[in-house]
Computed example of a mutant assay.
Amino acid sequence: MLHVLTDPLAYEFIRYALLMGLLIGGVCPIIGSYLVVQRLTLLGDVIAHALLPGLVLAHFWGIAFILGAFISGMLGTGLITWIRAQSRIKIDAAMALTFASFFALGIVLLSTLNTQLDLDGLLFGDILSVTAEEIRQAVILAVGLLVLVGLFYRPLLFLTFDRLGAEAMGLPVSWLNAGLMAAVTLTLILGMQMVGVILAIALMVGPATTAYLLVKELHQMMLIGSGLGAAASVIGVYLSYYLDLPTGPAIALVVFTLFLLALLFSPSQGIFTQPKLAQPGPNRR
């Protein structure tokens, strides 16, 4: 039975894929927990697609991908904030408009600048092709994100659950919110470069949402979500090896399976495990 676990490790690309899956699967849900609790999960999808114009321009001008993507992603979040502040437009409409506009701009730039950027690779990724250098870069970025979350955990916790209270206490709410958006953007850049947009969003939202059904405290949600994301990545890599499946989609399906199990059987919020409300009996006179 042990050979089922050890046989794939004979291949270097499988070992690298497992390491990258552990990194991204562990970090993405920690940042995604803030989005889930604040009911801004669509924002992760918006930012991921807002990165495309910056990636195209960075490739065309020959500058670092992370710089172009980061600027483009922050412009997208800034546009959403500006639309909300200057009009009666609700945040969901602002996000949908920004999503479509930035993605359309990216496609236009991709076709007019004649760059060789691999759009399919950005959307779907290929975790089996990651290199040792990419893993080192991912480790540095992941450690930086975790350090920042640790340093600003309490202010962000306050902001997440009581924005008005945070403002009344004199916390720099605008800067904290911008910092959180920057963390989301960097996390998605990390995930997109290595495993593609689709999987990065799945790992950011899926495990965090699953943990939301299991626990009530934010720090517990982060820890359990991180563990679920890492476990889903490992299981997905093994399934892709033995069943000859595309690795990214396999991981995403494992993420959804874990969510479905929590939705059905969570001790406190599961559909099949919640205590049934007593049905009112017939009135007796």
Rank of each mutant, 00 (worst) to 15 (best):
M1W: 12
G26N: 03
V237L: 09
D244A: 11
P172V: 05
P267D: 13
F256S: 11
E12A: 10
T210F: 07
I89R: 03
M222K: 05
L156H: 00
I30K: 01
V46S: 15
L253W: 09
L223K: 04
V147R: 01
W82H: 08
M222P: 03
L22G: 00
L2P: 05
M194W: 02
D244H: 13
L40V: 05
S87W: 07
V139L: 01
I235E: 10
T187M: 08
G68L: 02
T210E: 12
Q137I: 05
Q116F: 05
A96M: 10
L40S: 11
M20C: 11
A94C: 12
D120T: 09
R15E: 10
L277C: 04
L19E: 13
V215T: 12
L159C: 06
A96W: 03
F13K: 10
H3I: 15
L258D: 12
L35C: 14
L109S: 00
A166D: 14
N177T: 12
I83P: 12
W61A: 02
I198L: 11
V4C: 09
N283Y: 00
A10H: 11
T185P: 13
L156F: 00
M1Y: 13
S268P: 03
T112P: 01
T112Q: 07
S129A: 15
D7W: 01
R39P: 02
L105R: 05
S233W: 03
L113T: 00
N283D: 05
L261A: 10
A168Y: 06
L199M: 11
I47W: 14
A200D: 06
K276A: 15
L105K: 08
V173F: 00
I107D: 00
G54H: 14
I24L: 06
F13G: 05
V237S: 10
I14Y: 04
L2V: 03
H3F: 04
I271W: 15
S72V: 00
A10P: 05
F272E: 06
S266I: 04
S101W: 09
F272N: 07
L128S: 14
S174Q: 14
I135S: 08
Q220K: 15
A48T: 13
S129Q: 15
S233K: 08
T257G: 06
I24V: 09
A262V: 11
L151M: 13
I224N: 08
F60C: 06
Y241E: 12
I127S: 03
L9E: 09
F13I: 09
P246W: 12
P53V: 11
E133R: 15
A50R: 02
L5Q: 12
L79V: 14
H59S: 15
K276D: 11
F161Y: 08
A104D: 00
A69K: 12
F65S: 06
F103A: 04
P155I: 07
L214W: 02
R284H: 13
H49Q: 13
T247G: 06
T185C: 14
V237M: 06
I66F: 14
G179D: 01
V143S: 08
L55P: 02
I47Y: 14
A50D: 15
T81L: 06
H49E: 08
A94T: 03
Y16Q: 06
G78E: 04
A166M: 11
T6H: 01
A200R: 09
Y11S: 12
Y238F: 10
Q274D: 08
H49F: 11
M194R: 01
R136I: 05
A132N: 12
Y242L: 10
A142G: 02
L190Q: 06
